[in-house]
Structures are given as C-alpha cells and as structure tokens.
Design a binder for these strands. Structure first.
Lengths: 201, 201
DNA sequence: GGCGGCATATGATCCGAATCATACGGTCGG
DNA sequence: CCGACCGTATGATTCGGATCATATGCCGCC
C-alpha cells in the first residue's frame, strides 16, 4: 500500500508540501478563489461540485484516497468549482509555485508529471469504455481483464467490493451476482479479495 | 468547426506532421510495435483494442474526429494495444522525436501540452461522474449543464443526437425521450440542435 | 422524379439491474 | 460478552431503459 506522497514527481517537489485536515462538510476551496495549488487525498474523500446560477448542483468528481485533483489549476488563476470534504479527510497541499519551480529546475519532474497525466487520461478512457458495456457480468469481466492485463491472471483488491462495485458503475448486489455468475461459468476463480481469471482453453 | 490541427501546441510542432489515410479495418499500429508517435483523428474513427492471451477482446478507447490518442506513447518504447480504423479515416501522425524536440526547444509547447492533458483528465472525470447518474432525464440535464457552464445557458451541438446519446451512455431513443421530458418539464427549450437551459426562477 | 438512407421522433414490449428485504460472519467498542 | 455496525451474500419484486417497431422529413443520388 504505497502512499501517493511517495511517487517520484511529488517527492521531488520537496518540503513545500503541507498537509491539511478537513472536517466533514468543510471547504478546501471555492469557485472563484485564487489558485493556491493542487491536491492529493491522503485519507478520506473530497467532492468537487459546481453550482449553476439557479442553484442546481453538479458533481464533477469525487476524489478518494490516493487521487490527486485540481491539476488544471496549474494553468488557471482561479478555481472553477468548490471542493468540500465528504468525510473527515487528510489532504496534501502542493503549492502551485513549488510545482512550477520544480518543473523549471528539473525537466524530468515536468516529464514525470506529464506522464502521470497521460496515464490518467488513458485509464479514464478505459473506465469510460467499460461503462458502455450494458451487461453486468460482461462489464465486470472486462473490468477484471483491464486490471489483470499488465500482470498475470490474478487481481487482488485492497478495498471492499462495495467500493469496487461503485467504480464499475453497479450496485454492490449486482456486482456480487456478476461475480457469482462468472464463477459458475468457470471464467473466474475467487478467494476472498483475490480473483483469478481462467483461460477458457 | 476548428480543426484539431489548428491548436497551438500542435501547430508549434510544425512541418513534421504527416497524414495517413486508413481503410476500414486497417491497422495504424499493433501491440508491441515500436512507438513512432502520437495521433490525432482528422476524420473517421479509430478503435484501440487489446487482446488477452486467450483471444478475448477489450476495447480501450474509440477515438473520433478531433480526438488525440496514444499520448502515453511519449513515455513508452512500444505500443500497448492495437489501433484499427473502424471506418475509412484520416489520421495525423505526430512523430515522437518531433514532439520531444519541440518540448525541449520551447517550454511553452510542453506547458501547452501538459495543460491539454490536465483538461482532458478534468473532462473525462466529469463524464464518468455523469455516468453515475442512473436516471436518463437527470443524466441528460446534468450533461447539458456541464456543456453550457463555461458560456451561457445555450448548448449548440455540431453532431447528430445519436452520437450525443452514445456519449451520454444512452440509446438514442432514451435520449430523445429525456429531451422530451425536460422540455415538457420546462427545464429546457429546444430548437433543432440548439438547446437552451431555462432557469426555474 | 423517385428511391434509399439517415436523423428525428414516439409507441409497445421485454429484460435485467435497481431496489427492498433478509441473513450471516467478523470486528470493534462498551 | 454482547450488541451495533459493516461487508458479504442471495432472494423477491419493481421499475426504467433497452429493444423492437413504426412513421415522418430531409438529403443526396441514380
């Protein structure tokens, strides 16, 4: 369970990173606030929301442990949405100037950050593609394939299946049923939070 | 209808960009091929797919007109999936060395590219969040709000509603019905492909 | 002109995931 | 030790979006 703060690009920024504790419902920033920096969730959950003129709320993103957010703030002067803690949360604050300074001082840091963004784009596109699959079982199978692909045929989850279900875009009931079905069909083998994908060969 | 090739970061790369025409089913690259560059769809549609050992296909992304893809190849030596034209397509090929040279020569180009990636991440996250909304009408409304937010209360589509429906993750029937419902509810006003969002005030 | 194809649009039916309900085991705290 | 809570798991029912069907208008093409 490697923390996000141990990633090379972030540790290269060094001592300028502060940590903030937020209580439930507490705001980290609001729409229109001048940009102070970008953020990483160490623990907890932060909701990014935007309000239309007439008060309708849009959820833009829910960042959980290990996620960074507001990266686009590096290229803007003000925040374009509100960030509010869903639950008590610990947030790493990475000041904008510190990042830009690190980028200028060492191009490798900029490259590493760029690579991170590119991989994020890649991952998000795949996750969206997964959501285009209507069938719950097929969706779960494809999700497992996606996770297992880099390594071997085993997928190990470090969080509960309720959370995984939400990520796949299913209720936990539907997710459990999909796992059952795949197991019955002999496509997977389960052992707690370890799932092995079986070759139909 | 501004073409993707007119964006500053890409025009800064200059004359090294080539254009390729692909027939339906033709491959642009295959998993394991050495990286030549990244790509932009000028016209048509390209499917990025990965094959598991046992032949199961996973669709990672379907890039359409105006999309770039394989950005992560800048940080890799080989491609990690296949790219195949869904329909006859025109593709801009941006050689990896040309991009890296442009980045080194002018940090602003690197920054512009980084900003583009960051905005992509932002947009993709919102799209995923939209998919978490189960109700078709609410989903469409939120989608419209998302698109309208930067400008005013009007959204103008430059493509047919069938394509929009797919992006929202609905069948076109469900999408049309959602629009009808929103119209009846007085939440929107329609005029062909122009949709105005009405304040309930 | 006439035809085919496509986007738009809406009605009827079906299916499957959401929802509601229930149960069991593990863990944490009193 | 016991009770509350949560994750896991599965059954029963509901509901809404997918699917199938159908119609209209527009455009390009023969």
């Amino acid at each position: 369970m490697k923390g996000i703060l141990e990633e090379p690009w972030i540790s290269a920024i060094g001592g300028d990173i502060r940590e903030r504790q937020l209580g439930e419902g507490q705001f980290l920033f609001r729409q229109g606030d001048p940009v102070s920096g970008i953020f990483a969730v160490i623990e907890g959950r932060v909701r990014l929301v935007r309000y239309s003129r007439d008060g309708i709320v849009s959820v833009l993103y829910v960042a959980v442990s290990g996620d960074t957010f507001a990266e686009a703030a590096l290229f803007s002067d003000v925040y374009h949405c509100d960030a509010v803690a869903d639950v008590p949360s610990g947030i790493a604050v990475i000041p904008k100037e510190a990042i830009l300074r690190a980028f200028a001082a060492n191009p490798d840091v900029a490259t590493a950050f760029m690579a991170r963004l590119a991989r994020q784009v890649q991952a998000l596109r795949s996750r969206l593609e997964i959501r285009n699959i209507r069938s719950a079982t097929e969706r779960v199978l494809q999700y497992l394939l996606l996770l297992s692909a880099p390594g071997q045929r085993a997928v190990v989850f470090d969080r509960c299946f309720k959370d995984v279900a939400a990520e796949v875009g299913l209720t936990h009931e539907a997710f459990y049923r999909a796992l059952s079905t795949l197991d019955t069909q002999g496509k997977i083998e389960r052992n707690g939070r370890v799932i092995r994908i079986l070759d139909p060969a």
